[in-house]
Amino acid sequence: MSKVILVTGPAKSGKSEWAEHLATQTGKLVIYVATATVNKEDSEWLSRIEKHRQRRPKTWLTWEVPIQLVNTITTPQEGCLLIDSLGTWVANLLEQDQINWENTLQNLCSGLQDAEQDVILVAEEVGWGIVPAYPTGRTFRDRLGNLVRRIAAIADVVYLVAGGYVLNLTELGSPLPPHQE
């Protein structure tokens, strides 16, 4: 039986490190699904990507999947998928209109419920600050927040990583009633 695990939290909190730890603990082949696109002109971005690469075991496979996440999840694989990160994936799809985004979101949630392998997802918490001043920023924040909430509702386990500490929200918290838009 496959498991869906969501790891969420703010920037530089240790989300990816915790997700990598969880993936290692499965004892299965890990397929690291990177949603970022490589921009060779952005040296700071390349440095971030390289730090993630260096931390991963050499036995892990890495797939770069900036858009087609649903296809990756719904195609049966041996092992465990570790998807890092949902925020980058949402940013890659900001050009979608609201109707297409809702369809993408529904397809992702359905794919996760039907997944034949373990799936660990890393997501950023971006809605804890001010409301962005620009429409694109508000769209990103709202879409990611809604996505995290919907995945949390179907996940087997939800972790919050903040300040280098891990909280199992599934054990400590109570889920809200189903979300109504």
Rank of each mutant, 00 (worst) to 15 (best):
V131D: 02
A152G: 15
L121C: 14
T72C: 15
S110W: 05
L69V: 03
N168C: 13
E64Q: 15
Q106T: 13
E171F: 08
Q25S: 11
V70L: 08
L108N: 02
R48D: 03
I5Q: 00
S13Q: 07
N92F: 04
A152Q: 07
L29Y: 05
I5C: 00
A36T: 10
R53I: 04
A36M: 11
L93T: 09
P177W: 08
K28S: 06
P135A: 10
P132D: 07
V148R: 12
E50Y: 06
A162M: 13
N168S: 11
L112G: 04
D42R: 11
E181A: 14
A23Q: 02
E44S: 04
D156G: 09
N71R: 13
G145E: 02
D142P: 10
L172Y: 11
H179V: 07
L169K: 02
V65M: 01
S13G: 06
K15F: 01
V158F: 02
V70D: 03
G164A: 03
V7M: 05
S16K: 02
R138C: 00
K51P: 02
I120P: 00
V33E: 00
P177L: 13
G129R: 09
I67G: 08
S47G: 13
W18L: 14
R53P: 08
D114N: 14
G9H: 00
Q68L: 07
